[in-house]
Design a protein around this nucleic acid. Sequence first.
DNA 1: CTGGGGAGGGGGCCC
DNA 2: GGGGCCCCCTCCCCA
Length: 435
Amino acid sequence: MEISTHQSHLLQQLNEQRRQDVFCDCSILVEGKVFKAHRNVLFASSGYFKMLLSQNSKETSQPTTATFQAFSPDTFTVILDFVYSGKLSLTGQNVIEVMSAASFLQMTDVISVCKTFIKSSLDISEKEKDRYFSLSDKDASSNGIERSAFYGGSWQEESSSPHSHLSPDHGKSWGKYNYPPASQRSTQLPGAKQEQRKDSIKKTKHLRLSQPPEAAQYKSSKREARASDSSSHISQAEEQAQIDTEMDSASVGYQYGQGSEVTSRSFSDDLPRMRFKCPYCTHVVKRKADLKRHLRCHTGERPYPCQACGKRFSRLDHLSSHFRTIHQACKLICRKCKRHVTDLTGQVVQEGTRRYRLCNECLAEVGIDSLPIDLEAEQHLMSPSDGDKHSRWHLSEDENRSYVEIVEDGSADLVIQQVDDSEEEEEKEIKPNIR
DNA sequence: CTGGGGAGGGGGCCC
DNA sequence: GGGGCCCCCTCCCCA
């Protein structure tokens, strides 16, 4: 016979013990704030603690202390509350940081819920948008009620509801990429100073969260430029009201399962027919696909690595552009004298993984031997027939083909591979995308 | 210190 | 919805 309330009762008791610091044998120091918890509970909830406590298992008589600077105390409170209650208190403001912390702590369930939460935010309803526009400044400030999305013990059931397409398995791409460090991304809206961002990057460099330095870059100037654009459909006052409201909406968070449905309400004719609003900034796009693409600049997701140099890109077209420019010398311009060159008047020079063209005169001056590169054949690869769009991407026949081989054979064919940046990737050092 | 150019990155939009 | 192109902006390097 099974008593269904036992588990929740047990967890409740443990939580109570934690709050009263009873039998707590583990102290977690997060940016100066001390959290008390039970070793057993942490061990069972987090892969990170499992490893940490396994190493200290021989010294069970001594209280264990862990120190974190990768996330804020508030974030760890959310995590710890989840551990002891099964309820994850997510808001649009904290979800990225919570996910980053969960990633650090190797808490896959939490990561999955965060993924679902973020992915759901792609479906920004027009209703919500309508609310943004209709609220006055005063309304925005008075109605900005803190509402959090609670992922209680039943979140798994919820995720198999109408949002089942966002279930953890389907959201793989999110967990595989790197997220900006907590202090880098924090909860700043795009207006945040870039200097502050740079400082944050420096500050968090020592952390083991492997992030590309420019992850989650967002160019606030663009927004400012837009805000100052007099040709905008919205007056500056309205824009400010919208921004204020959206600033507020950051704390309003996202109503999972309630506000995610895209409604069919249309805007009045004098408002732009934009449909999808970014949950992290003021950007609004017409197409969901564009929002998905835009979100990568917040998440730092870079699913397209260059197989020639390892540099990673958030977009396939940027990768192909990079590859053409850097590794295929597609520009018919002499790098030295900038004159137009053809296959007759110049040749391709290889320098590491980079290729560029030099005219015959500059080639003679520099005295570099050109490579016997069959550009026609490569051009063929880069110019597929319309009926075979993907033939330009020389798909890897041998997945074990190493980077060295790619470089050394000089073929420099672009190998598109949407990589899996899952757990094992976190162990490796990410090649920084330093320009 | 400054200007020019290259490269990367983001948005709009067409196919 | 994805791929790809164009445009624009920013950053960085270098002369």
